[in-house]
Structures are given as structure tokens and as C-alpha cells.
Simulated scan of single mutants.
Amino acid sequence: MRFTWLMMIFLCISVPGIVRAQAAFSGLVGTAPIELVLGYYEPESEAGGVYAYTKYHTPIALSGTLKAGVLTLTEKDALGKPSATLTVPAFAVNHGALTGTWKNLATGRELPLKLNQRFIMESGESVSWEKRELMQASSLPTIYFRLVTTKSAADTYPRVRGVKLLDKKTDRLLQEFSVNCQLLGLNNVDVDDYNFDGLADFSVYEAGSAGPNTTSLYFLYNPTTKRYAKSSFSGTSLEFDHKKKHIYERSSSAAGSYVTTATYEVVRNRMVLVAKHCYVLDPERHKLVERKLSACE
């Protein structure tokens, strides 16, 4: 599917604060078409997201504020230095059209910003909609990602029902995977080398549970087919050590009374258990103490 909009911003719902708005816009920066999906929060009135030019489809992260009706978003260069701003002086999420300015901070060059609303990401009971697509902040050199999101009346919040891999140059759909994940926002997709073969893979945030526990789905690149496939990798809050080529898992109880850890190595694209440990909170010493595995079961 080919999109005519060019810029997209979506603020991750995990940012502290109360979500006041998440909405998508399309329009122009100068003469370049854009798409914008914007979020802002209270009480800090933080705002942010990611945008990309359709010609390149490379996501650019944004952060900023919404104060007294003035929306200011800043993008940074590869060194983390602010490089440009997008400003809308009279912002309101329910406006059908928005106008403002894009400014290059190095040269001072300014371009007009013109946007029209495409959709709002509504939540709550009795609200339903289908197949609204959100570009992700992470991308590969030649591929970018879009989530396919759906909100059913039975769910309080939107769900991620699919992930699309698209070619940056042509916007051609390369692969699509069906998933059923919580909507984290612009950071649902992450890129890393999960099987330590020197090639980039990607993951999709699946869910968060008790305490700090999270799970993700892992998709590995096959250099022979030049395609990605869902792996059997699974576990809680996995971390990947590229130097030792180990995968570490950590799972905590909701109250933090016990923690289990595990170490895996990768053999033929499968996780193989190397070691597993159990730690239980000692109330007198106020720290976790290693116990038999049965104590954590």
C-alpha cells in the first residue's frame, strides 16, 4: 500500500503523565508532503514523536512541549544536538487544519508547515476503529516499519494486530506479520542482532505484566531467503549481550519478593538454557538471597 502522506509523529504511551491527545495529520513542510501523529501530556505538557520524509522514509525522533497553545517540537542530529524545530503557534487537537513553521537551527531557514487531521487515536469503552497505521521510530537501512492498530469496543485500549515491513525507496510492502500486542507507541518495534550472527533482526513489544516484567516477539533475518521469520525466542525482560553472545532473562514477582534469572546461548537460532537462579527477599537483611529454584516456583 502506498501512502501519500510524508511525516508522522506518535508519542509513546509509556511517557509519564496523563495522555490528552494522540492524533494523526497529513500535509506539507514547504512543498514536501508530510504526516503527523502527535501526542501531548499533562501536567508537564510534554509532547513528542517521530517524523519522516516520504522520499526517504527514515524516521526522525522529536521531543518538545505544548504550552499556552503553542506546540514546539525539536529534532536532533546524529550527535544529539538540536537541528530543527517544528512550531504550531495555535495548536488544538480538534482543529481540522494546523499551520506553523519548520526551522533549520543551523541556517535559520524557515518553511511553512501545513497539516490536516487524518485521525485521532480514541480509547475507552464503546469506541471502535480498524487498521490505523503508525510508523515506528526504529528502522533498518532500507526498511521501515508500520504497526497496524485496531480498537474494538471490548478493549479499553488499542491493540497492535500487525507489523508491516516496507521498502524506504519505493514504499513497497515487503513483508507483513500478524501479531496481538499491547500498543506501546512509536517504540513497539526495536532493531538489534538477537541471534548474534552479525545481521540486524527486529522485535515487537508484546506485553507488560507484574512488576517490571515485559515480553517481546523476535523476528530473525535469514540471509539465504533475505526475509524475516518469527523465531522461537521467548522469555521475560530479555537482554542481549553481544560480547559474550548470551541472552539474559530476569523475572520478578509483583511485590519484588522473589526474582528468577536465567542465561541462554543461541544454538541454531534457538535459545539453549545455560544456567538458572532463584533469589528470595530476606526481610531481616532487606536484600535478595539466592535459594533453590523450587523457592521461586
Rank of each mutant, 00 (worst) to 15 (best):
F119A: 15
E130L: 08
A97D: 06
L66W: 01
E133C: 13
T65I: 05
Y218R: 03
W129E: 04
S294M: 00
S14R: 10
E297T: 02
A92S: 11
Y157P: 00
R172E: 15
E249K: 05
W129H: 06
R268D: 14
S126L: 09
C12W: 01
G69R: 09
G124S: 07
A275L: 03
E284K: 15
L174I: 09
A295V: 15
G235N: 07
M7Q: 11
R20Y: 14
T142A: 13
R20H: 15
Y205Q: 02
W5L: 06
L111Q: 03
V15E: 13
L293I: 08
L98E: 00
A90N: 12
P33L: 01
L186W: 02
L186I: 06
G100C: 03
W5I: 12
E133M: 09
S234A: 09
V274A: 04
R159C: 00
Y51P: 04
K103N: 08
A24F: 12
S123E: 09
P212Q: 08
A92G: 02
H242L: 05
R2G: 15
Y40R: 03
A84W: 01
N94H: 05
L28N: 02
V267S: 14
K164G: 06
G80I: 13
D193W: 06
Y279F: 03
S45M: 09
P82G: 00
S126P: 04
T74Q: 06
V127R: 11
T65F: 12
R132N: 13
K55L: 05
E176Q: 14
R159G: 03
Q117V: 15
T4D: 13
P223I: 04
G30W: 12
L28V: 05
E249G: 01
A295N: 14
A254C: 07
L38K: 02
S45F: 07
A47L: 02
C181H: 02
F145M: 06
I247Q: 00
Q182L: 09
S26Y: 07
S63R: 03
F91W: 11
D155I: 01
K226V: 12
E176L: 04
H286I: 00
I60G: 01
P33F: 05
T156H: 14
T65C: 05
G162L: 05
R285S: 13
S63L: 00
E249D: 07
D171H: 14
P223G: 06
S139I: 00
A229K: 04
Q22C: 06
V163L: 15
K276R: 14
V88P: 02
D77L: 07
Y248F: 15
T54F: 12
S83F: 12
P223S: 04
Y144I: 05
T101W: 08
T236M: 10
